[in-house]
Amino acid sequence: MTILPVSRIHSASIDLLAIRDNAAVLVRRAGSRIVVADVRADAYGHGLTAVIGAAVDGGACAPDIDSAASLGPDAKFVSAGSALYGLLPDLELKPAMRVSALVVGTKTIDAGESVSYGYTWTAISRTNLALVGIGYADGLDRIASNRGSLRLRGALRRIVGRVAMNALVLDLGQDSALIGDEAVVFGDPSTGEPAVWDWASSLGRPSAEIVSVFGSHLPRVYR
């Protein structure tokens, strides 16, 4: 298993037990058919080698990489992609990827003051802001500007102003945060964290795209 250097500022944390357990669920549901792990695009950004290990532990088959894409709807095989990674709202499946970043700055601004490039958002009253170290170069779509939210200190906080290449700003209103607090883009919805499919649908993108892009840019940490 390759473990990339751990960034202290942002990461994609991958729950290999979730992948193993999801594989086991899919194997059970497949009955007599063989479940083959779909590991294209570096296992949807989750990391090829680690995912194959976990999926095989759960009873799925490791694909022949060159032919996996062409398996098709063969009666004997069933390809497991989105379900394997927990990208579907299915109570038996658990999302494997969690994307989070740390607060690297805090600030209070007055009514009338604006935030980030182009000043696309202006505070209507005095408010607290948190600067979070994740941006579009990490896979957090720029279209989330003034639209998406991250969970920080127990609540969803709206992104205000434009998402920059490596940072974004959250509006905390009268709440406050500390440098080093963790803001969650998506994770395990059973613990109250945002779900990847909610993040994806708020941006009009497939969940598979969201995890593939984050996973290929963020340092991955395996649990």
Partner: peptide, 15 residues
């Protein structure tokens, strides 16, 4: 795409 060139090039996979 309604974005800036920077997003398109930085989004490309390192692979």
């Amino acid at each position: 795409l309604g974005t800036i060139g920077e997003e398109i090039v930085t989004r490309l996979s390192p692979r």
